[in-house]
């Protein structure tokens, strides 16, 4: 149980895919201009990574090593298309505002990276736990960045007006340059968090 917990939490801070591994950044900057987009993208991505890791891990002994990359892509693309179609059918508005970024989950390096580095070697249950940790680590960062950007850049949260009428939205934060700046802010926040966490365990181990 403790081992599982370790696999799960590492995706949140210490090995956060966006802020520590620094992969899959492009679409993250692009979709985080509003919180609803951030939630949608985070959940879609978590769904795809959980099922991709599960399937790859289940079939890991049947996947020939030389053909593993194309097989990974087939599996990831299949789940991404399922998410895309379901969103179009049941959340048309969200699907519209996310545009091309849902199909682009296929080429998100986070999924490819975790499948290659983890799921293709570990047991299915571990793979699912790893995927949940990574997916959640991705989602919280997206929501955090999107919240700050939407609040400052548009004066709203989830479309509801938060800032007083007099507040002039700082457009900069909705545009890509502002996205990069907020991203940098979160990277430093995460480094600080990581320092706290690893220091804590180091102290505990010493004691």
């Amino acid at each position: 149980m403790k081992r599982m917990w370790k696999i799960f939490v590492k995706g949140l801070v210490v090995e956060n895919p966006l802020l520590m591994l620094m992969i899959g950044l492009c679409s993250s900057v692009a979709v985080t201009s509003s919180v609803s987009n951030g939630i949608g993208m985070g959940l879609a991505m978590t769904f795809v990574i959980v099922f991709a890791e599960l399937v790859i891990s289940l079939f890991r002994k049947l996947i020939p090593n030389d053909a593993r990359i194309p097989i990974f892509i087939i599996v990831i693309a299949a789940f991404t298309t399922m998410v895309d179609l379901s969103m179009q059918a049941y959340f048309p508005a969200l699907s519209k505002s996310m545009g091309v970024f849902i199909p682009l989950i296929v080429v998100n390096c986070i999924i490819m990276g975790r499948v290659e580095a983890f799921a293709s070697k570990e047991k299915p249950l571990d793979a699912v736990v790893d995927a949940l940790g990574m997916g959640l680590g991705y989602t919280w960062v997206l929501i955090g960045i999107a919240a700050l950007r939407e609040l400052l850049g548009n004066g709203t949260l989830l479309g509801a007006r938060i800032m007083p009428e007099a507040f002039q939205p700082i457009l900069f934060f909705t545009l890509p340059p502002g996205g990069f700046m907020v991203f940098a802010l979160f990277i430093s926040l995460n480094l600080w968090l990581k320092k706290k966490i690893t220091n804590g365990t180091a102290v505990r181990e010493a004691a």
Partner: peptide
């Protein structure tokens, strides 16, 4: 191996597509 995985993915997608 590739063909089998592609066929599996294809079948799953066909189901989702018909539903949605």
């Amino acid at each position: 191996a590739l063909a089998l995985f592609a066929a599996g993915a294809c079948a799953a997608l066909a189901v989702v597509y018909t539903v949605t």
